[in-house]
């Protein structure tokens, strides 16, 4: 592997976003294909951050920096990928429910999902129920991810599930939830298909729900 790819992977892994950007631009100028950057440096970088998290070597502060470096690198590379190079046909729409502004967990989950090759639509924070429903209707994601941080806003998740049922859309999308106050019991109670206890677990649950390895 050329040094620049190794350096780029290291920059993503170590959360050095400025260095990652510099290396992406430099690699593109050298004629390295965008898909090569994604597959051989950017994705392996964020994936290794996940492994270090699992091993207790990385803490959230490390992972968020890796996620930011990943995001910034992908912002440059992604528009240059051709249609055939889209990383995955599986689509995940994810947002923090209405009334909740917390986005830290979502940022990390999105980076980990993209790092695992999924096509992720970030619906943002404080997302109204209608937006989740319309997204399922129009964009037809395979998975809908709902996040929250507060014990009051977690109740919005129930509303999303109820509206999916009422609108006849429940059967066409799997729903996974996450966030500090949520639990597997709560996921079962509201009829979600899965609960991610952290970002890595969310990726694992998404893969399981979609039947991909």
């Amino acid at each position: 592997m050329p040094d620049i790819l190794q350096d780029l992977k290291k920059a993503v892994l170590e959360g050095d976003d400025e260095q990652a950007l510099k290396l992406v631009r430099s690699a593109l100028q050298q004629g390295i294909q965008p898909i090569t950057l994604v597959n051989q440096a950017i994705m392996p970088g964020i994936q290794e951050a996940g492994i270090l998290w699992k091993k207790n070597t990385y803490f959230q502060s490390d992972v968020i920096m890796s996620a930011e470096a990943f995001r910034m690198a992908m912002e440059v590379v992604e528009p240059l990928l051709t249609a055939g190079e889209v990383v995955s046909s599986k689509k995940i729409a994810i947002g923090t429910v209405a009334g909740d502004m917390h986005n830290l967990g979502k940022i990390i989950v999105i980076a980990m999902l993209r790092g695992a090759g999924f096509n992720v639509i970030d619906l943002g924070e404080d997302v109204p129920v209608d937006t989740f429903i319309n997204t399922v209707k129009i964009q037809k994601p395979d998975i809908l991810g709902l996040g929250c941080y507060m014990t009051t806003t977690m109740l919005e998740m129930k509303e999303v599930l109820k509206n999916l049922n009422d609108s006849g859309l429940r059967g066409q999308v799997k729903v996974i939830i996450g966030g500090v106050p949520t639990s597997q019991e709560f996921a079962d109670e509201i009829g979600a298909d899965g609960w991610g206890k952290d970002a890595l677990d969310a990726v694992y649950k998404v893969k399981t729900l979609l039947g991909v390895s």
Binding site: N103, D126, M150, T153
Partner: peptide
């Protein structure tokens, strides 16, 4: 901050 009819006010971290 973001205020709501049925939840605690929360900082808009964005």
């Amino acid at each position: 901050l973001v205020y709501s009819d049925n939840a605690m006010p929360t900082i808009d971290y964005r």
